[in-house]
Computed example of a mutant assay.
Amino acid sequence: MNQELDSAAGSLPHDNFRCGTVALAGRPNVGKSTLLNALIGFRLSITSPRPQTTRHRILGINTSEAGQIMYVDTPGLHRGAKRAMNRSLNRAARSAISDVDLVVQVIEAGRWTDEDEALYAALVEQSSPRLLVINKVDLNKDKTVMLPFVAELVAKHSYDEIHYVSALKGQGLQELEQAILQRLPVRPPVFGEDEVTDRSERFLAAEMVREQLMLRLDQELPYATTVEIEQFNDRPDGIAEIHAIIWVERAGQKAIVIGNGGAQLKAIGTGARRHMERMFERKVFLKLWVKVREGWVDDENMLKKFGYTD
């Protein structure tokens, strides 16, 4: 921890100041990343309508006068993990819930699936307190349907509290944050007041390119892609120069990512660059290449090279 961070952390109150780590866990596509972004007030985790958009554990930090909450956005725990990539995501999700002060299980309003049940079974093996967050309540027009759904849930499952939220609309978040804070230990902050993550700009740049792949490519193709940052330098003129490789599994996929006359790759690059400039608060020069590495999704060594670790 550097001196600047020590100084920032030391400026916060310490009497009854609470600080701890909270895992946001759930099956794919229940809105964990949207919830993280809403809770920290910063667009940190990439989002898309596709399940399994989140592939890495992302730490998002929210610091207030009352405390510092370190949220961990986890990959969605899912069944049918036949490929090495999917097994890696499940290991990362299970690892994230084993070493935190509190777990928040996020589900979709009105839906409880086998994957939700499997995650709950993993949670009860831990000693951490657990909250249930029912997300996307704004999409449920008939509120009376929720009553029997929740009644059946609480009859079979034990949670310290249940919260109804809409991460997208910002509903119910203040009450959820208070419930989290009161269950965290009293201790000084770990990070400075202005820090929102421990992830590097290099990592975030790769994620923003991958987000565009998830948003712009059809069907299963986004899952056969990953992004590696080959170069990230700040030039003397203040521009961040970033070179990134988009890896795919087959030559046919490469052609699709590039698109007719390079149009698709240009659109991916433009979308990613705009997000980078907003987040990094400086101009970005982004250069993208598409390369083929057959079977990288099932290659444990390549997965480690690309940062997929527990």
Rank of each mutant, 00 (worst) to 15 (best):
Q178E: 15
R202L: 15
F203L: 11
M208I: 13
Q171F: 12
P185R: 09
L184R: 02
E207I: 07
E220I: 00
D218F: 09
L221W: 03
D234K: 13
L184F: 02
E220H: 03
E211P: 04
P222G: 03
M214E: 01
D234A: 11
R183F: 03
R199T: 09
E207L: 07
V209C: 04
T225H: 00
V209Y: 01
A206T: 10
A179K: 02
T225K: 02
Y223E: 04
G170I: 10
R202G: 09
R235F: 04
E195L: 13
V186W: 05
R210T: 03
A206Y: 05
L204K: 08
E211K: 04
F191Q: 05
R199G: 10
L181V: 03
N233M: 09
R210C: 03
F203Y: 12
D198W: 08
L213S: 04
G172Y: 06
E177L: 13
Q182K: 15
P185M: 09
K169S: 10
R210A: 02
P185W: 09
T197C: 07
E195V: 12
D198S: 14
E220F: 00
E230T: 15
G172K: 06
V209Q: 00
N233K: 15
D194S: 14
Q182G: 02
L168G: 02
R210H: 06
P222D: 04
A224D: 05
K169M: 12
L221G: 06
E175G: 13
L221H: 05
E207R: 06
V190M: 12
R183T: 03
M214P: 00
